[in-house]
Write a protein that binds this DNA or RNA. Structure first.
Lengths: 220, 220
DNA sequence: CCAAAACTCGAGTGAGCACTCGAGTTTTCA
DNA sequence: TGAAAACTCGAGTGCTCACTCGAGTTTTGG
């Protein structure tokens, strides 16, 4: 009653090293799930990578599905969830291409995303809701940005922002899969740039775009 | 030749019902792998679906990875591997859209493909080579068809056939994933049609576009 | 300084896994 | 028709899995 901050005010804070331990577990789990998937990766493997016993791991994350969701949310908290561009001055195309090129050089990020996204459409997969919501969020975000570009006359006539948003995300995911299976045969950034070149009109034509012909051949 | 067709000519043919049983196993395995993935699906589950013991199943397919590869090749033998169009008179766009719409109505086909494709980028997955080769084959096939259209002037200027081939496949796969997670929010055929409308030029431009090519020449 | 919470982990627990073995039954084919 | 291959399956085999238990150690906060 003296210092009461709750009905059973008997809680203490975690140890000083706890945050670091959790981070080590998340790093290890990220690597393991990226390499073997959720079902194929074991808690023992994660614990070994993190340098602790499986029992200690379960002290921080009480179940395997909790660990998976923690890894997914951890990634989003670090790299962003793709919804909000870090620099509001950066164009949509530049942001997409910069992120695509960046991902090529950070091993494990694309593996984790691609592997888990495929697994997630499986019955009872703990990451299913995460990916469903992520796609929903991304589609809305890109559609909004594309609609704004359309208002500025920078979208090719006939292109629907909602369709283009879903298509851009789909193209991005699909090309990642192909790149992971044959890195030398696919140019991720090149494919994305080619698609954006088809959908977007160059900035300097914005005066003529609303009234006259775009630089590339118009649609029939 | 009558009694000797090999060094140890003592082989006999399988039972009459064997082909049917193999087909029942493949059907069951298709459903199980589509619902739970390769790692998440068990041989016991497949055997139960097929109405036999796990031991009998293993008589026909001596290991789980053998069963997976058999399922993948069985699908290709039924639906085609996407390389050869069934009707040489059908245009590339029509074939893509027809297949996309067909897949929407056959449950399990997209699940199997999407789930296994994601799993396959995992270390040591038995389906990895299959998907790598499949993508290679598909890219080459579409690139060839697009290059021919380019020769007929039916490709939008500036579009690279190789890039467009990889992009079309990527878009297709990616939109399938989104559709499986949120069927009501995504129009698969619509996205593919929109992309093809961006890449291909309408047919009536053929007279101005090229010299004297037939409208839909058979593949060389 | 000290009680109690936070942490650590060896040793299970029970379930499920792919796969094997051996013995019985059914079918083929000469 | 009969020998032998094709098939069937109950009963394992050894392994790994996620997760629990209980008991000890370390750290915190008053």
């Amino acid at each position: 009653m003296s210092t009461k901050d709750g009905p059973q005010a008997s809680r203490r804070g975690p140890y000083a090293k706890s945050a670091e331990r959790r981070r080590a577990i998340l790093t290890a789990a990220h690597a393991v799930f990226a390499a073997h998937g959720y079902r194929g990766g074991s808690l023992q493997d994660v614990a070994n990578h993190a340098g602790m016993s499986q029992t200690s791991l379960l002290h921080y994350f009480p179940s395997k599905s909790d660990l998976l969701l923690a890894v997914l949310n951890w990634r989003d908290s670090i790299t962003g969830d793709g919804t909000a561009p870090p620099d509001p001055e950066e164009s949509l195309a530049d942001a997409v291409l910069r992120q695509a090129r960046f991902n090529e050089d950070v091993p494990g990020v694309l593996e984790l995303y691609t592997v888990l996204c495929g697994e997630a459409v499986t019955e009872g997969h703990p990451g299913r809701d995460y990916f469903t919501e992520r796609f929903d969020r991304l589609r809305r975000s890109y559609a909004r940005q594309l609609a704004q570009l359309a208002g500025e006359g920078r979208l090719r006539p006939g292109v629907d922002p909602d369709t283009a948003a879903a298509s851009l995300i789909a193209l991005w995911d699909g090309i990642q899969t192909q790149w992971l299976l044959a890195p030398g045969s696919v140019d991720m950034a090149g494919c994305l740039r080619a698609y954006l070149d088809l959908v977007l009109l160059p900035e300097e034509d914005q005066e003529r775009a609303s009234a006259g012909a775009p630089p590339l051949a118009p649609l029939g």
